[in-house]
Design a protein around this nucleic acid. Sequence first.
DNA 1: CGATCTGTTAGTAG
DNA 2: ACTACTAACAGATC
Length: 260
Amino acid sequence: MPELPEVAYQKKYVDATALHKKIVKVETGAAKLFQSAQKDFEKALKNSSFEETTQLGKYLFLKISSGQQLVFHFGMTGKMEYYQHDEVPKHAQLTTVFEDDSRLSFVCPRKFGKIYMAEGVEDFQKKHSLGNHALDVKENKFLELLQNKKGNIKAALTDQHVIAGIGNLYADEMLYQCGIHPKSKTENLSEKEKKCLFMEMGKILNRVIKTKTEGSKLPDNYLSRHRKEGKDCPNGKGRVEMIKVSGRSTYFCPDCQKEK
DNA sequence: CGATCTGTTAGTAG
DNA sequence: ACTACTAACAGATC
């Protein structure tokens, strides 16, 4: 569940289900996800409650009564599950049992996720030198960030130290919508192209958040809906191709996106 | 069976 | 110091 829109959905989910309930019991799963001792998490969470949530890129913060922040990174397969029964879901890595006997689990089958305890959001951001939340970045700042980036544009867009929240899927979408080849050097992009990327970043992320919350579909002219080799490009004549860029599978239309 | 998947990070080499 | 590429992590799904 990993890029910014999916995490936004998880935030809404937690807000709607798990706030302000006293935690009476804590259960932990695979040790490798925990970035400090599991005992410390149990100690901090027990008899506390979740007060509010904050999102920064692909990270979700749950503030507990002490002011500390429980932080989740969803890896590739993490998600939150709230439920009333006492059968713990498969691959639950952290489960908090509330006073009313309902539960919230962080479920993560592939165990690529991470769980931290932080003193504050800004503190955490600094410590991990994360960029700002993609939807909070202003156009000027966006242009400035791309100004001195070497390498291909896709790597720059998905670099969490530059901007937090864009992953493989929506980077491809942004590049497709702007007709930019994913291997184009960032320094070769025109002002117009960079401004297009900025605009599409906001448009796409907000659009995806909306579809996740409403359960609706993305527009047909989105590449995400044709993300398979050989599929017809929604714009016309091209066919979708898959290449590796910075080690990641990258889908694009060679007809709409020419390399620079 | 093998290929693929929305992510990060350590290691290596330049 | 920065940049670029690779492997590794682990399970589900097609």
